[in-house]
Amino acid sequence: MNTIWTTIVIVAMCILTVLSPDKVSDVAIQSAQQALTTAFSMCGVYCLWLSITDILGKSGVVYVVARLMKALTRPLFGDLSEETDKDISMGLSANIIGAGNVATPFNINAMTALTKGKPALTRSGAMLFVLNATGVQLIPSTVVGLRTSALSANPSDIILPSIICTAVTSLIAVLGVFLFYGRCDT
């Protein structure tokens, strides 16, 4: 990541210096401001859903969700600690109903637990990231909404190809992790 980031930023900065020198520092400064706005706009989502999770955890509902998701999490992640299993199950459920932002705090918790004290990314950590980064969302509601407002004759006719495509990419992603990280954490 360091190499890619540094190379791209150096090249971009050089081009920008030639084109419009005043903009170089402006872009960097505005980026941090933009990051703050984004972080704070997500803060609301995180606060609400972490509160809801707290209730779900204390009332024992998460254990039910975790047990229901066992069929999916066991073959993918192998044996997990109870806490991580809960986070991953909640994250996956949130993603499936199309609430990607809600899934983030769960997945970050799980990721922290999966890689704690390890020098590098573990297989289960890689599986968690790759699954989420290739999209486990079933219904692309944002896109359908945008098409509706763009006066499409049939806004939802993209749902079927999207589902097929997501299913195939998820499968490829899982195979990729099995191929490059092996079957189980060693």
């Binding site: 990314l121 950590g125 890689a126 990231f129 790759v130 290739t134 990419t169």
Partner: peptide
């Protein structure tokens, strides 16, 4: 990747990001 690997402060993430990117492209 910035969100997930930042929160957990993890190294050696290149392979996982590559798998995700190739898969996205196939998609």
């Amino acid at each position: 990747s910035a969100l997930y690997f930042g929160g957990g402060k993890i190294r050696n993430t290149g392979k996982a990001i590559a798998i995700a990117l190739v898969t996205t492209f196939i998609g």
